[in-house]
Computed example of a mutant assay.
Amino acid sequence: MKIRLITAFLFLTACFSAFGQEKNSSAVVDKGLIKVSIMYPFAEGKTFNMEYYETKHMPMVAGFLGSNLVKYTIEKGLASGIPNQPLPFMAIGVFYVKSLNDYQTAIAPKRDAIMADFPNYTNIAPVILVSEVIR
């Protein structure tokens, strides 16, 4: 019985240790990346078609970025961080890229096509933040 408990403890310790190492190595990989956040503020009367955004718009823009794109994420706003306060953003799309210059070079000639696609999924003017991943 004692050997089983020790074996189980060692197994769980190894699992948690491996999980922690994986999590830390992921942070190292992201450090230094450029993060382009496209945020769609919530307001009465505004609409957002998440299915279109997920299946058409974001893949289209991701395709323009080529090998500079590391990954992209799509977030659906659920609630404010303060109870009983309005939702701050309906959705946020994020591109993680290696180079800001390469991102800007790829997007510039496609800007009109990207903006022309907005009415297909929203009537919200997005707020865009470009930042560098520190950790």
Rank of each mutant, 00 (worst) to 15 (best):
E44I: 09
F48A: 10
L65R: 10
Y103P: 00
P86Q: 15
S25W: 15
Y72T: 07
K31V: 08
K56V: 13
T105R: 09
G66S: 04
V29P: 00
I134G: 04
R4D: 01
R4K: 11
M58Q: 01
Y96F: 12
I34L: 03
V61A: 03
Q21T: 06
I6N: 09
L5P: 03
L10R: 05
K35R: 15
P126R: 00
P59I: 14
P83F: 14
T13R: 08
V133E: 07
K76L: 10
M115G: 12
L129N: 11
L78I: 05
P41I: 07
I74F: 10
I124W: 11
V97W: 07
F16C: 06
L129C: 10
N24G: 04
Q104Y: 00
N101F: 04
E22P: 01
I3S: 07
S99H: 01
K46Y: 11
R4G: 00
A91L: 08
L10W: 00
V36C: 04
E54C: 03
A18I: 05
V70D: 06
A116L: 05
A79M: 11
I6C: 05
Y121F: 08
V94Y: 07
A8L: 08
V29D: 07
K98M: 07
P86W: 15
F48D: 11
V97I: 05
N123E: 05
N101I: 04
V127F: 09
I38R: 07
G93E: 02
F19H: 09
G81Q: 02
D112L: 01
G93P: 05
P86V: 12
I107N: 03
V130K: 14
A8Q: 04
V28D: 15
K71L: 10
A116W: 03
Y72H: 13
I6P: 02
S25F: 13
K98D: 01
E51Y: 00
T55Y: 00
R135H: 06
K76G: 13
N84G: 07
V133Q: 12
M90R: 13
I74R: 07
A27C: 10
V70H: 04
Y72W: 14
M115S: 11
K23D: 07
A106S: 09
K76A: 13
P41W: 08
C15T: 00
A113D: 13
V36E: 04
G20R: 14
A18R: 08
F16G: 04
P41L: 15
Y72K: 06
S131I: 00
P126C: 03
L5W: 08
T7R: 09
A91Q: 01
I3Q: 08
I128S: 04
C15L: 08
K76T: 10
T122S: 04
G77P: 10
N68I: 07
Y40W: 13
P88T: 06
I82P: 01
S67N: 08
L129P: 05
I114G: 11
M115L: 09
Q21Y: 15
I38A: 15
L87N: 13
S80D: 13
L78E: 13
E132T: 06
A14Q: 06
S67K: 12
K71M: 11
E51T: 14
G20F: 15
I114T: 05
K23S: 05
K98H: 12
F48R: 03
N120A: 11
A125L: 05
Y103D: 02
Y52V: 10
L78Q: 12
D102G: 02
A79F: 12
A116G: 12
E132H: 11
Y96K: 04
S131P: 10
Q21V: 08
F16Q: 10
L87K: 12
N68P: 03
S25R: 14
K46V: 06
I34D: 09
